[in-house]
Design a protein around this nucleic acid. Sequence first.
DNA 1: AACACGGCCAACCGCCTGAAT
DNA 2: CATTCAGGCGGTTGGCCGTGT
Length: 348
Amino acid sequence: MGRSPCCEKNGLKKGPWTAEEDQKLIDYIQKNGYGNWRTLPKNAGLQRCGKSCRLRWTNYLRPDIKRGRFSFEEEETIIQLHSVLGNKWSAIAARLPGRTDNEIKNYWNTHIRKRLLRMGIDPVTHNPRLDLLDISSILSSSFYSSSHSNMFGVQPMVNPELLRLAASLLSSQRNSPNPNYAQQNGQENQFGNPHQVQENHLVQVQNQDHQTLIQEIPSCAPLSDPSCVPFSSEPAQLIEPNVDQLPSSYSHFNTQTCQLNDWQNNLDNFIAMENYGYQSNLTSSDYDFTSQISNLSTPSSSPAPLNSNSNSTNYINGSSTEDEREISYCGNLFKYEYQDILDSNVFM
DNA sequence: AACACGGCCAACCGCCTGAAT
DNA sequence: CATTCAGGCGGTTGGCCGTGT
């Protein structure tokens, strides 16, 4: 009746693998392939249980594993996938070649989760933490502006559609496609088909205490409205666009400047811009470079006088990140360029 | 130098599902 | 059909290491 036990429970080694054990496992799999983990340890001369061997191989020894730091793109992909799939680490890993579910899970718990919390986002539901939100401040805030014409002074980083979208914030909680959120609220995903999830806006607001809050708001605008094209939180390959509703042309560059002392405060704004669908020249390293910015902020490194009519030649390019990305600044102003790529991003 | 503390991550634990018997 | 186990998965743990005091 039933199968025989895969291995003896006693006498098997546990704990960290030695280099010798690793080599035995590698040699055996290279020669015989993997599978049948039940008999593999014995055949390979390992005093390990098959399960331990499988984990060691899949999480560490596999030749196609990509080691090292997660790229910004990978990080964004993880966040987007998690917003749709929840803690389905294996499903997320399947869309990130070379990364294991264990590695992604660890990275989420040690990096991304904390970052989202700092941004005021609930890492489980991917919705703003309403306990931090003062929505009335959105409507009264001078932070809002519909124009980029004022090139100097602190610019609003909020999409002009924010006010209208913010009105739907409360309903967005009920309509969240996040399975975690639906589960928490005892609801089914109203979209049924997992490939047809609702698209969300991630927008950033400031409250009266100048606290930065990020909000996820479901799109309420038709795609035919070029001023409000939704940014998808779904991986691009899952989107099935309605070509007939594609905006014809909607791509341009914008330039953003801010006062030097507000750079750090505005960094989160830039992150929010990216989340909203803007492509920036920031990389993952930029999120941790406040100390480098501080160095640039010293008088010796910002010698140029402020010139409100400066063109690019009047700006000093500060190599402010480890990967040689440059951010322009002039006097006490930083210039930040971002490209609106909504037309190519939504239906990629 | 010594210690405490926290971050990180490899590995384990326990549960679930489907297949084998 | 019942039982048993392999494989897969997500959650958790424990030890290593870097940093601060």
